[in-house]
Design a protein around this nucleic acid. Sequence first.
DNA 1: CTTGACCTTGGACTATGGTCCAAGGTGCAC
DNA 2: GTGCACCTTGGACCATAGTCCAAGGTCAAG
Lengths: 143, 143
Amino acid sequence: MTNGLTIGAFAKSVGVRADTIRYYERHGLLADPGRTAAGYRIYDARDVERVRFIRKGKHLGFTLKEIGTLLSLHSSDTARAADVLDITQRKIAEFKSQISDLSQIEAALQRLADECPVNAPATDCPILAHLAALPERQGERED
Amino acid sequence: MTNGLTIGAFAKSVGVRADTIRYYERHGLLADPGRTAAGYRIYDARDVERVRFIRKGKHLGFTLKEIGTLLSLHSSDTARAADVLDITQRKIAEFKSQISDLSQIEAALQRLADECPVNAPATDCPILAHLAALPERQGERED
DNA sequence: CTTGACCTTGGACTATGGTCCAAGGTGCAC
DNA sequence: GTGCACCTTGGACCATAGTCCAAGGTCAAG
């Protein structure tokens, strides 16, 4: 029986702050919870599962908005696996693109760093030289 | 003679909005420019170079704060190449770490997506199953 | 009955990098 | 001399995902 938790205990049990729970509620990820006579929010085991779902979704790189969609697919009885797959594929594509961008930049920085003479004044640094390069001279090394 | 540009023309010449130029100024990346009698900002070729430096820095993934540091190293006559290299290495490390994180998540999503039966109700989707998994059952497939 | 820990609300603040707006002044062309 | 395009300023707003705060209400212990 983990039911009847107030927000603080509930939040602690799922490893987030009480503010985060209220934030999820305000943003439609959690339904309005039950309340005590005094107006205190009360959570039960189902809420625990729901927050864990959200946390795992975040862990997989989904935004809260996407997680909201995933949650509604999860609760729907007409939703198809393809709907979930679609969101997932999009996310995969997004990550691939980000990885590709980051890799290219990283490689460019690495090339510049490799040429950088440590024991020299900054004026000899190819990194600064690259940043300060005139547009005309860029044909040398640009995509 | 590209000197004596007002902010709009200047911004256009470097491919940004006038607001962006003011933003850079407010954030210390551009020094206070000269002014006409009426108070209009006036820019010259050196400013063009400086903004291009900033843009290229952004292109290489540096934050404006880092670019500010790079700019001051660029204008310093005591700065050493090692100072620039240091910032660059940090950025490279940051990117490597991001790439690694993204790759792991992407792989995890790909594994789930590969198992997802397209023509099935969402209840059979391993992606939702993973998100909804109880903490106890996670030992099966977690790091 | 008081104290401390908890809860309520709405709103402000964080970081990042701009973008947009309103109210008013300027510059140039026709 | 009027209209339009530009400029000025300060401040508000966008997305993201929270975090923190103040003022006030509640609950249980001692």
